[in-house]
């Protein structure tokens, strides 16, 4: 029982990332009808927003401290981050400590802008082109984004730390009456799960409870009619693209402490997120979220030792196997609408 609980918990954080990326992919596909292979790159750029902010806050100047001497007897050089000199040492240190959550604020405008620029600059011209062309051009774009990041940040993963308040783990089992140290779960992963739940809820409320969202949903159902009603649906769809990019970016920002960002992390997630979208049902937002969590949890179940003993290597391929099964038996996915992209 405790093992099962632990695997569910372990699956949730990866599942959260899958769900957020897949949600963005589905938003883009549902509104603009574009298959975006560059979405993983947006996730990666989000993670690098966190890295950049941490570096930016860490910028420091050197002063000589005459009271201390180094081993040669010269006055010791002390590095003081600018932030600490502006806000005082304590305040400054805690701002640096909290850089990853702060990067959320920092990344939203960046991601919205990147999304907007991508849609207006490139994707716009590909509405009428075949899906294959869309896949190819966004694949090219993903390579370019990846290489730009690689050029400035190098090819190695960059460790990015979570705030010290969230370091350490929660002994989850004790709270449910199990023995201590059976179900241990890092705080930051809990935060990540809560954060993704909040983001996903926000996106759904935005779509369901605002006029803007209503128009967008109407546009997803029948773009032409909405256009005939005199509503500038294209502009709204562009904004939705920006929002989808921001969701992917946010997923990346908060993921940085879990897995040190490197330039190709986006590609790894992209393939899986596409599989998630397909399993959930092309164009179904709820399906994307549900399938994201489902596959995340399934993946962590498959990595349990006794299952691996029965079927070796199952943890590596379980997601793909599920996708193949779903595509062959129920091509519209778990929650896809009938008739949408079924062949």
């Amino acid at each position: 029982m405790d093992g099962i609980l632990l695997q569910i918990l372990n699956g949730l954080d990866k599942g959260s990332a899958y769900a957020m990326i897949a949600l963005g992919l589905t938003l883009i596909f549902g509104t603009l009808g574009v298959v975006n292979f560059a979405h993983g790159a947006l996730f990666m750029i989000g993670a690098f927003c966190a890295v950049s902010l941490q570096r930016l806050l860490g910028l420091s100047f050197e002063t000589l401290d005459p009271t201390k001497k180094d081993f040669l007897g010269n006055p010791l050089k002390v590095k003081t981050p600018y932030i600490e000199s502006w806000f005082g040492p304590e305040m400054g240190a805690s701002i640096i400590d909290w850089s990853v959550p702060l990067a959320i604020l920092f990344s939203i405008p960046i991601m919205l802008f990147v999304g907007w620029a991508m849609e207006r600059g490139l994707i716009k011209h590909f509405y009428k082109r075949p899906h294959a062309d869309q896949i190819l051009v966004t694949f090219g774009l993903a390579i370019v984004m990846q290489e730009i990041i690689k050029h400035y940040y190098g090819a190695n993963p960059i460790p990015t730390s979570a705030p010290s308040a969230f370091k350490g783990s929660l002994d989850f089992g004790v709270m449910l009456g199990f023995d201590p140290n059976v179900i241990i779960y890092p705080y930051w992963r809990l935060v990540y799960f809560a954060f993704s739940a909040a983001v996903i809820t926000a996106v759904f409320s935005f779509l369901n409870f605002t006029t803007f969202g209503m128009v967008v949903r109407a546009g997803m159902a029948d773009r032409e009619t909405v256009g005939l009603l005199g509503i500038n649906i294209d502009r709204r769809f562009t904004i939705m693209f920006g929002i989808a990019a921001a969701v992917a970016g946010l997923a990346g920002v908060m993921y940085a402490p879990i897995n040190s960002p490197n330039y190709h992390m986006g590609m790894d997630f992209l393939v899986l997120s596409f599989v998630v979208v397909v399993v959930g049902g092309m164009g179904s937002l709820r399906g994307a979220v549900a399938a994201g969590f489902l596959l995340g949890v399934l993946e962590s179940f498959a990595s349990m030792n006794w299952i691996k003993d029965v079927i070796p290597g199952i943890d590596q391929i379980i997601i793909y196997l599920v996708a193949i099964l779903i595509l062959l038996t129920r091509p519209r996915g778990l929650m896809g609408r009938k008739g949408v992209m079924e062949d």
Binding site: V271, V275, L327, M341
Partner: peptide
Amino acid sequence: RRSGIYFSILTLAF
């Protein structure tokens, strides 16, 4: 058994 983007994703998955 599928075409278009599904075919691409299936081959990718394999």
